[in-house]
């Protein structure tokens, strides 16, 4: 059963998250273990399993990036697992760019220059969105190698943004 099946949807890259959230609430009201607190063990276990599947599907589908990775996974390429992601070769020029940016970020971290780091993250955020859009187009026309390449980029760029966020959180406290 795929995450889309859980919500009775056909696999799609664009989803109405508000509607999905409404559906999550309606389905939770139907299946949540609390609805069966006084029922027998088997019924409670079934409720637990259904709700688990629901929560896990929602976690993936509500997020456009996770959703795109998941659609790619349904097409046979799992970029979520380290082992298989390592098989995807990114072009050297991109890796060099990542390295160069990483050095710049290290410098900013040392200088505790959160503002500059945020500016970098914003720029990278735009690139990430563009790569995600290209990945979606590729997925639409079933071009798995191109989608893999673009989502590989998204993967790298996301990590970078996460690092900036960690830096910001540190500054916050």
């Amino acid at each position: 059963m795929t995450h889309f099946d859980v919500f009775g949807l056909t696999p799609a890259l664009e989803l109405d998250v508000k509607a999905l959230e409404q559906q999550l609430r309606a389905l939770s009201l139907e299946f949540h273990p609390d609805r069966f607190a006084q029922a027998d063990a088997r019924t409670r276990l079934a409720a637990l399993e259904k709700t688990t599947a629901l929560n896990d599907a929602f976690k993936v589908l509500r997020d456009p990036v996770k959703r795109a990775f998941y659609v790619l996974k349904l097409k046979g390429v799992d970029l979520d697992s380290e082992a298989s992601a390592a098989q995807v070769k990114m072009p050297l020029s991109f890796l060099e760019e990542v390295m160069e940016r990483r050095e710049r970020l290290e410098g900013l971290k040392h200088a505790r220059d959160v503002e500059q780091a945020r500016a970098m993250a914003d720029e990278i955020e735009r690139e990430k969105s563009a790569a995600l859009e290209r990945a979606k187009v590729a997925l639409e026309r079933d071009d798995v190698p191109e989608a893999t390449h673009q989502l590989g980029r998204v993967r790298y760029l996301s990590r970078f943004i996460e690092e900036v966020e960690a830096l910001e959180e540190e500054a916050l406290s």
Partner: peptide, 13 residues
Amino acid sequence: NSAIPTAQGQVFT
């Protein structure tokens, strides 16, 4: 802050 109940699997080699 993940919603519960939940489950998550991962493959290690």
